[in-house]
């Protein structure tokens, strides 16, 4: 039984990462019906900024004296940086195409993804970059289940960010503006909502969450690579669709399910490890076939962002 719970914890951790990335996809889709393919690259950029900042602080001895402060500082700075990066991407690649067909914007997003990935490769090199991971090894064993502090950290940060996001969307003025824009861009503009600003903010929030995921992945797995955004990006997109694209809680649940299915397939099905991606996507196809709007339903009322 402890084997099952151990695998469950593994799945939750992986799912938490997918969920954070999926939120960015789902929010952007909710507001401008665009699948933002460059989102995975924003996630990778967050991971890289994290390794740059943490390595610098570690070389200055700061990570030994104030590890938690260092981590929080790197996290906040990377989130801010990626938010600005995503706003710039939106301004350059998507905003000029606001009135064009959805296909042009989609292609622009694909191009942006390739551009950012190659930019990372050229500036940071093709080699894996190692994270300073000395402080991530700790953990405890409880009833035969081994839980590392990093796993708790990932789940805690994911949960915290989700609560903050929900508060932002449902309790604040900008959240209300986001929901209004998602519902009807023209009408919301007529009542005085600056829709361009709202869209920009949505990109920024999604990117900040992806940056946080990027740092946590770097810390948890120990290294980052320029193309690290591609596969988690696809998985997170699948998670967003699975949960019902445009639905925040759905993206969260979708992410956890995809992470869990991957791990449990590898754990219990013979040769499951080599086909775990297949299982994740088979689930996706199945859900879409029987519930075309995803598990939580694609929101069409005022809760969509």
């Amino acid at each position: 039984m402890d084997y099952f719970f151990q695998q469950l914890i593994n799945g939750l951790t992986l799912g938490g990462v997918y969920a954070l990335v999926a939120l960015g996809y789902t929010m952007v889709y909710g507001i401008i019906q665009l699948i933002n393919f460059a989102h995975g690259e924003i996630f990778a950029a967050g991971g890289y900024l994290g390794v740059i900042l943490l390595s610098y602080m570690a070389s200055q001895g700061l990570m030994d004296s104030h590890p938690w402060f260092g981590l929080a500082f790197a996290l906040i700075l990377a989130m801010g940086y990626c938010a600005m990066l995503a706003m710039a991407v939106e301004k350059v690649a998507y905003k000029p195409l606001r009135q064009s067909s959805r296909l042009s914007v989609l292609l622009s997003a694909l191009g942006m993804s390739i551009f950012l990935q190659n930019g990372l490769m050229l500036t940071q090199g093709v080699y894996d970059k190692a994270y300073p991971t000395e402080f991530t090894h700790g953990g405890f064993e409880w009833l035969g289940v081994r839980v590392s502090y990093m796993q708790i950290g990932i789940l805690a940060v994911t949960a915290l960010l989700l609560v903050l996001l929900n508060t932002l969307v449902f309790k604040t003025r900008i959240g209300k503006a986001m929901r209004a824009t998602a519902q009807d861009k023209v009408m919301s503009a007529l009542v005085g909502i600056h829709s361009d600003k709202v869209i920009s903010t949505t990109f920024a929030i999604g990117a900040a969450l992806a940056a946080a995921a990027g740092i946590m992945v770097g810390l948890y797995y120990g290294s980052v690579r320029y193309d690290m955004g591609f596969v988690p990006g696809i998985k997170a997109f699948a998670a967003a669709v699975l949960g019902g694209i445009g639905n925040i809680t759905g993206a969260m649940i979708g992410g956890l399910i995809i992470g869990m299915v991957e791990i449990l397939a590898a754990a219990y099905i013979p040769a499951g490890g080599e086909y775990k991606d297949v299982f994740a996507f088979v689930i996706l196809i199945g859900v879409l076939y029987f519930m075309p709007t995803g598990i939580m339903g694609e929101n069409v009322d005022d809760t969509r962002v």
Partner: peptide, 17 residues
């Protein structure tokens, strides 16, 4: 004799096994 995929980052399932 288990297999993983090239480029995988998460080996937690097989390592727990």
């Amino acid at each position: 004799h288990d297999h993983v995929n090239q480029g995988d980052k998460d080996f937690s399932a097989v390592l727990t096994k």
